[in-house]
Design a binder for these strands. Structure first.
Lengths: 319, 319
DNA sequence: TACCTTGATGACAACGTTGTCAACGCGCCG
DNA sequence: CGGCGCGTTGACAACGTTGTCATCAAGGTA
């Protein structure tokens, strides 16, 4: 910038004004400056600008794994909203590791992000306190981050309730639940919906029909369950990866899965799912974040997005 | 930092030393400083550090669309490698728009990224010249960015050749090619492999068997082709989205698709594909970038990763 | 005792930008 | 013709950090 200034024969500040489109510069002067900028290939140093103004026009996004289609859709939505607000996105995958989540968040903060969108891996977010006090906004997505934090969720319990009820309506009395570790919020909620559906139908909650854990392990548990005596006649799977694991067992199962996935309709039978909308989730969280950033100081919001049951065949198989 | 210094009763520089683990500070002093840091919840301002040292420990990643599983895998790999090198990743989706690509790249540069990994949407990267001269490293991935730029590609032509030859070996004489717009590098290369396979088998190149364009449009073209007179007996699809579009035509097709996808094995028949390895692509590009960043000034490299034919049934159907 | 070495600590400038305020020239009004 | 206001421009400080160099005290040596 200094070089540009001397090349154009003006003061630093004038160049700054031109670069930022501030008023109070003659057309002729602006012209000279612009020419010099072109000629020298000058680009503003954003770090310095950030240092000076304290605003970075960037937000941090911490998710579990970009390679998971659910989070990939969410990412893209966040990115698009950020772009519309002139912001960049720093993103990182926590891989369900609370330590890594924390590390990412703090790194983002020290880089001066204006706000954060976090899919929390851990449950304790006290480490964020100083940052929040310092005015960094944060929105939690997919899982709650705390009682007084902005949060955007899917209706996990309701979705699971709808899916399991659907199976029961089709005549099933023994419906298995195969899901993620129950310590994960979404998984716990879905299990809750499952129990509620059973309860309302007057069916017992039978722990021998419940398997939780990582996808592969859950798949094995399902196989054991199916080859035991008095096996379930239908299965409700608690997330996309586990739905796929269930499909890989190779059996023709009455099945409803939580989370939609590409090609679900092309399988035989088509896979009935409870669909979430990751794009809407990401967009909603991002919009909320930018509302906060532009000064909305209202009390914390907790938004719950609806899910949608999509019947495709597997959920309508008789016992 | 100033506050910490006065709280601990030391000079600014001493705090800086402690924060950076520099030698030359008594244990007692360090202790006092650390305590003060804890108490005040101090975090180093990375922007200022960047401004001072000119190094940001962050790289920029420009891809076509994070929501596409191929790029999602690539992203995750880049992220992991960057993490291992203590770097952050700024990422953005260009959506095949060269203007947007340029905008993203320049924004990243002005934020002072140390290097870039670019899946180029455009063909002209002259706008990068000033940045490259300024010492920012760039690696192009999946598509070449220019003759003298580091590039990591998949063996597109070879993969397509293998896939089409596979169909021919199974008795097909009329093999259609349905792919992306031929102006996209990967698509052009795959078409080249297709022609080579035909040529080597002594089959004619028949333009009525070639359809290119966006997925939906290509799908429609395929349907027209199949219901014409003298239809193809087999189809080679040029990317994942188009493979899916072909599957959605609902016909039992002899089919080999470029790019693997989840559940390809669960369809009936299983879908034979030419698999690329997005994770390896991303990791290779990132490793190359970090090698450059750590001072490797060798001449530009062009790395071509192999593809792998995975027979699953659809590619082995007879004419 | 005087001098030198060593290690700890601090003062200060610099990175590139922008906000603040002053200076300057010009035309207008009284 | 003098003073005033306005629009343009520039000088300077500040953002928070780190690199450079100076300072200072303690301890060892001649």
């Amino acid at each position: 910038m200094k070089d540009v200034a001397s090349a154009a024969g003006v003061a630093l500040k004038t160049v700054s004004r031109v670069v930022n489109g501030e008023p109070g510069v003659t057309l002729a002067t602006a012209e000279r400056v612009t020419t010099a900028i072109e000629r020298l290939g000058y680009r503003r140093n954003e770090s310095a600008r950030v240092l000076r103004q304290g605003r970075t026009a960037s937000i941090g996004l911490v998710i579990e794994d970009v390679a998971d289609p659910f989070y990939a859709g969410l990412s893209r939505a966040v990115e698009d909203v950020a772009l519309r607000h002139g912001s960049l996105v720093l993103s990182g995958s926590s891989g369900e590791d609370p330590r890594r989540e924390r590390e990412l968040v703090l790194t983002f903060c020290s880089r001066g992000v204006d706000g954060l969108i976090i899919v929390p891996a851990g449950t304790d977010h006290d480490y964020l306190r100083p940052e929040l006090d310092a005015g960094i906004a944060a929105v939690f997505a997919d899982r709650p981050g705390g009682p007084d934090a902005d949060t955007v969720l899917c209706d996990n319990a309701g979705g699971a309730y709808a899916g399991v009820s659907h199976l029961i309506r089709h005549g099933h009395r023994r419906v298995a639940f195969v899901g993620d570790s129950a310590s994960i919020f979404t998984s716990g909620e879905r299990l809750r919906g499952y129990r509620r559906a059973l309860g309302e139908a007057g069916l017992p909650f039978d722990t021998s029909l419940v398997a939780t854990g990582p996808a592969r392990q859950a798949g094995l548990a399902l196989i054991r369950m199916l080859s035991g005596d008095d096996p379930p006649t239908a299965v409700f799977t608690g997330n996309g990866r586990i739905t796929v694991a269930a499909l890989r067992t190779g059996r023709r199962l009455a099945l409803v899965g939580f989370d939609d996935f590409e090609l679900a309709d092309l399988l035989d039978p088509g896979v009935t799912v409870v669909a979430q909308d990751p794009v809407r989730l990401g967009a909603t969280a991002a919009e909320l974040l930018f509302r906060r950033l532009s000064g909305d100081l209202g009390s914390p919001e907790r938004i719950e997005l609806p899910t949608r049951l999509i019947p495709r065949g597997s959920g309508e198989l008789p016992p």
